[in-house]
Amino acid sequence: MPSTGPVSGPSPGAVRAPRRAALVLTPALVAGLLLLSLLAASVGAYEIPLADVAGSVLHRTGLGGATTDRVAEGVLWNVRLPRVALAVLVGGSLGCAGALMQGVFGNPLAEPGIIGISAGAAVGAVASIALGLAFLGTWTVTVCAFVSGLLTVLVVYALSRTDGRTEVVTLILTGIAVNAFAGALIGLFVFVADDAQITQITFWQLGSLAQATWPKVLAVLPWAAVGLAVAPLYARRLDLLALGERQARHLGVDVERLRVVLIVVVALLTAAAVAVSGIVSFVGLLVPHLLRMVAGPGHRFLVPGSALGGAVTLVAADLAARTLAQPAELPLGVLTALLGSPVFFLLLRRTRRRQGGWA
């Protein structure tokens, strides 16, 4: 009779490989973000040498360096750097939110828009434009989009809750229904808007960082900081949740509480990002996919890594959006969708070919 030895688990090499990849990727992403940020601050209609950009930043932060000429200083600190900073915050928020959504739903096809955050924020922005609201001046559209996005998530969660619990399938189906309703509301507001308002609505929906200012950076910063600080604290529980809800409960995870907290974090990150940039698609969906393929599914790296990856992606995309068709500027959301959708399709086909789909 053949002997039956213990069932072998993953080899130590197979376990260490993702850890090594994570150790390499983290400094690479940080270095890439710094270099891209300097490049984005340098390149444009008014060229500023990289050495002058670095010197001015070092001088302003009290680390040496020197200022450049007055025109370059004005362009750098009033136009370029606010835009770069906003791209970092928006990209980091969307990337982190995407990783959290995929962990909460146990599905790599999940992204923040699936529970109506982006569509809800769009309703608030479009309504404020179409109705000519201006109770907060230039901040009206931003505030309406942020509040509307948060309220939409609360509605989705309330409608999904049954007997004190929420099921993933119910959340997804409710999100689909709310997205459809939000789309209908947007259509109605577009119908009653005049030509100038329709142009403004279209520009907002296509996504852009062209209106970046330091006040907008400061408006997003607290929400992004809170979300990005809280999210990694739940990495271990997300790893346990990946084993299945029942197993996670047996291991001491309060699944319902975990889901509520992380959906709130996702709502804050996404609503703040969408409120200042419009709808920028595929960042929260694609970035966690790519990192998961390289560094494995562990959320201790995946959550902060997706924030870094999202920031790198959006800084690069915004640089391309404003330089590829100079003097015109491509809509940021259109560019990310054009590049992201075929890459996502290729990843999907590759995964299905190799392992029959996502586990």
Rank of each mutant, 00 (worst) to 15 (best):
V168R: 03
G149D: 08
V190Q: 15
L50F: 08
G5V: 09
T351K: 14
A145K: 07
I198G: 09
L335A: 09
S118Q: 10
L243P: 00
G340S: 03
A17M: 13
V57T: 09
V220R: 08
P82K: 03
V24N: 05
R354N: 14
L76G: 02
A235I: 06
T166G: 02
I48P: 00
R16D: 07
G310S: 11
V168C: 01
A321M: 10
V15H: 00
R161D: 03
R20N: 10
L173C: 01
L100Q: 06
L33Y: 06
T213W: 00
G132W: 08
R349T: 11
S160P: 02
L136F: 14
V143L: 15
L330Y: 07
S306F: 02
L290T: 09
S208I: 12
L39Q: 04
D194E: 01
A51C: 00
E167V: 03
L269I: 04
A295E: 03
W139D: 14
I263W: 05
V123H: 08
L206R: 08
V7T: 13
A97R: 04
G64P: 06
V334I: 14
D195C: 06
A184T: 03
P327T: 08
D195Q: 15
T68A: 12
V280H: 09
V143H: 06
P112H: 13
Q200P: 05
L262F: 05
P108A: 11
L241D: 03
L81Q: 01
V126P: 01
F146W: 13
C96T: 01
G333M: 05
D254L: 10
T142E: 07
G103N: 13
L159Q: 10
P304Q: 11
A337Q: 04
G103E: 14
L63D: 02
R259C: 01
G252E: 02
V260C: 08
R60Q: 14
A17R: 15
V79N: 04
Q326H: 09
F301N: 02
A119R: 02
L221Y: 07
V53A: 08
L36D: 01
K216I: 07
L94F: 12
A66F: 09
R165W: 09
Q247W: 00
A119I: 00
A99H: 10
L81K: 04
G175W: 05
I186N: 07
G278A: 09
L23V: 09
S11Q: 13
V255S: 02
V287D: 06
R161N: 10
A54S: 11
V276K: 14
A248F: 08
V88N: 07
P82H: 09
R237H: 06
P215V: 14
P10H: 13
T170S: 15
R60A: 12
S11D: 12
G356M: 14
T270V: 04
N78A: 11
G62Q: 13
V7Y: 04
A359E: 14
L150C: 15
F344W: 01
V126K: 11
A54T: 11
R322D: 09
P327N: 11
L29I: 04
G357T: 02
R322T: 12
L63Q: 12
E329W: 06
A320M: 13
Q247V: 15
A225F: 13
G132F: 05
A267C: 11
M101E: 10
G124Q: 08
G92P: 02
A45L: 03
L291N: 10
I186D: 05
L251N: 05
V143T: 14
R322S: 12
P304V: 06
W139M: 15
L34H: 08
L109G: 07
V315Y: 12
F345D: 00
A87M: 13
